[in-house]
Amino acid sequence: MTRAGFSAVEAARAIAVPSADSDKYSRGVLGVVTGSDRFPGAAVLGVEAASRTGVGMIRYLGPERPAALVLARRPEVVTADGRVQAWLLGSGTSPDRDPAERERLVGLLEQRLPVVLDAGSLDLVPEAQGPAVLTPHFGELVPVLAAAGVETSKDEVAADPERWAVRAAAATGTTVLLKGATTMIADPDGLGYAVRAGQPWLATAGSGDVLGGVLGALLATHSPELQERPALLAELAAAAAWIHGEAGRVASRGGPIQALDVAEAVPAVIRRLLAGA
């Protein structure tokens, strides 16, 4: 059963505020494997959004061309392998990958860390061994369900997204964030949220990549808690959707926006949340 609504007070609880004793590791390190030669911007947008949501460090371990663009935008990003607390995988990629790359990604999932699986990594759902959030749009949910033995169509999902988000969470054993004008979040235990997007201007290329970055950051900053309280995953997914929608509203102010505008508005949204809290 999906619970209607998600409030600013609830979203504020998802923000990990550093203390005087915090360092870049205790604040959360997000590992990112996103983007491709064909869609390099997805890497830039996800990393930009994650960096503005409050992680201590980002390790970008994707292809060379997106890596160069990420570093040009965010020189503080680390491109060397090492310790992480959560993963963001798949934005701007295709499931048509070579065997060596698939083996690498499966190896990351075997670390049992919290993970966001988006776009080209949704086929790896059966390999996820830690807390996982899937972030499909309507069309991407269809093959996810098919792999779990559930047949449907994009039109059917669009007609009743709440039902299909709940069905997908139960079928895959993961938390599902189904993107749309109203974002539906459901977990395998039946916990769910419906989060209304900020406004229609958010329907723009790359907006989902920004959402993935926000969510990845929240998972990294709450990684230890997620091991103890799996239900927190749905709350963090709802908080990411809320922050993303509000950042769209702040960036737009009633006019057109692009995805990078949304990412750049995230700190203002978080400041308001913390001031209100």
Rank of each mutant, 00 (worst) to 15 (best):
A4G: 09
S7C: 02
V9D: 05
A20K: 15
S26A: 14
S26T: 15
V29N: 03
G31H: 03
G35Q: 07
G35S: 11
S36L: 09
G41Y: 05
G41S: 11
L45Q: 11
G46T: 03
A49I: 03
A49T: 08
A50V: 04
A50F: 02
R59C: 01
L61D: 00
G62L: 06
A67L: 00
L69G: 06
V78K: 07
T79Y: 00
D81C: 05
D81S: 14
A86D: 05
L89H: 03
R97V: 12
E110T: 11
P114Q: 12
V115L: 04
V116W: 02
A119I: 01
P126A: 08
G130F: 01
A132V: 12
H137P: 11
E140L: 09
P143F: 04
V144R: 06
L145S: 08
L145F: 06
G149E: 13
A158K: 14
D160N: 15
A165Q: 06
T172A: 12
T174Q: 13
T174P: 00
V176E: 01
L178R: 05
D187W: 00
Y193I: 03
R196L: 13
P200Y: 14
W201N: 08
A203N: 14
L215Y: 03
L215P: 02
A220C: 10
L226R: 08
Q227A: 14
E228Q: 15
E228C: 09
R229G: 00
L232T: 05
L233G: 00
L236G: 02
A241G: 06
G245M: 07
A247S: 12
V250P: 01
L260E: 09
A263R: 01
A263G: 09
P267Y: 09
A268V: 08
L273D: 08
L274W: 10
G276M: 12
A277L: 14
